[in-house]
Amino acid sequence: MRRKSFVGIIASAVIFASGTVLAHHGANLYDTTKAVMLKGTITKFEWGTPHNQIYFDAKDAKGEVQHWVASTEPAPVMLERGWTRRSLKEGDQVTVYIFAAKNGATVGNLQKIVLADGKELTAAGAPGEPPAPAAR
């Protein structure tokens, strides 16, 4: 709860759940009705199957660093979205939009990531298409 008050809840108009989200393993663990926005620093990027893992640090309301892990679809699918294994590197300053775990754990499904130069990398929905309506 404390975390949520700090990071802010992005209105569901920004990013909606898509069919892809439901394809993620464990998607039922996450709140897919709204994306949470987090500003942080990349600590590790694991590129592969069955899913990629993006590790990043973001501060909570008390200024304490929280370690987050965001999951994406597997590498061959992210290639279709324009990602590569070089898309993120340790130290990158990023804004992360994530469907976070319902139980407050610092894990979730990535929806979108914005790099310091403004470049956006999408992780949900079909590339170039508007966000899909809420899936459930």
Binding site: H25, G26, Y30, P50, S71, N103, V107
Partner: peptide, 12 residues
């Protein structure tokens, strides 16, 4: 490993 890294933490 994927489950241990991501899913397990979100599982109550």
């Amino acid at each position: 490993e994927h489950y241990e890294k991501v899913g397990a933490a979100g599982n109550t």
